[in-house]
Amino acid sequence: MTKCNKNEIFSHELPTTPIDPETQAKRDAKIQVAMIGFCGCWGCTLSFLDMDEALIALLDKVNITRSSITDTKRIPGRMALGFIEGGIANSENIAVLEEYRENCDVLISVGACAIWGGVPAMRNVIPLEECFREAYIDSETAVPDAKKTIPFHEDIPTITTKVMPLHEVVKIDYFIPGCPPDGATILKVLDDLINGREFDLPSAMNRYD
């Protein structure tokens, strides 16, 4: 995340082919949204696509900047909404979540992992050392007689001892439960927010599986 070596060059800092100014102006006039997935299954992002035809209509009003489905690798300015799936499981997740909080007016936790850690948080009851041995030392497919190796390197983040929900790290404004919430539920929330209505998830849509 942090840039500490002058010989390091990030791809997003290099010269790009500029986007046509007219297209950019149209996008700038829309509501700016940033999305990201942390420790989860990417399912809530796919539920976003599950808005189906409504997604195309939504894109008339909304511009998606940084996300896992676009190539914008850093939040480019002030965002109205941050749409986040997944829990917090490594050092990089913490830094990026803080960047989202700093740059988004409203942050939404989407899905079971963002809201309470979800299935990945089941590891919280197991000491890390045991997990660690299981994966890399005692694995039945480990290479016999090879040097025992645990991933640990300057180019990969360290893993947190527990998987955390987003609101344990930063303030979160709204929560959409579900594993995953379906496309209609996500649409209801986004449609309300971009049209200036209050967040109002009816109990029929408030489900947890």
Binding site: N90, S91, R123, L128, E129, E130, C131, F132, R133, E134, A135, Y136, I137, S139, K148, T149, I150, P151, F152, T158, I159, T160, T161
Partner: peptide
């Protein structure tokens, strides 16, 4: 797959030699 160097290295160090064997 699970298991990883923890955010807090001292957790492993506090648990003894076993960890040092892998690091």
């Amino acid at each position: 797959a699970m298991g990883q160097m923890p955010l807090v290295l001292s957790v492993f160090n506090a648990k003894g030699e076993l960890v040092n064997e892998f690091v």
